[in-house]
Amino acid sequence: MPNFYLPASKQTPEIDFKFDENHLSMKGESYPENAGAFYGRVMEELRAYLSGGSGRNIVVDVALRYFNSASTKLVFKFVEELDTAASNEGSIRLNWLFEEEDDMLREFGENLQEDFTSLDINLQETTY
């Protein structure tokens, strides 16, 4: 399937799904007025990709500096989809990036590690 790219705006992250390299990335801030509409498209692409193959080694980078409550739920669903697909793939590694002083995003990443054990979730400090 063709790669999927959405440039970042002030309130939506850059979406860079390089399906041909099995490398997916979401990067930026996320607080659109209608989070459901924005992530609806993203999830559609993700589901099509995950159901279109198996045994792959997939790397996903999530570097969301800030996301609002409506986006939080959809980011969680995104990770849930990856976790569900993990048994069907070779491996799925999720790099969860956060500003080193951001205790909340660190904790969010730690909670993802507890909640989704089929994924290899790697917490990475970064500086924006």
Partner: peptide, 26 residues
Amino acid sequence: YRKALRAEGEEDSKGGGIGLLTLARD
């Protein structure tokens, strides 16, 4: 908050029903 993340959204909510929890958490 963690429970609410897993719950399906409320019908009349535009934010998945965790806005107030997010405010309370912060």
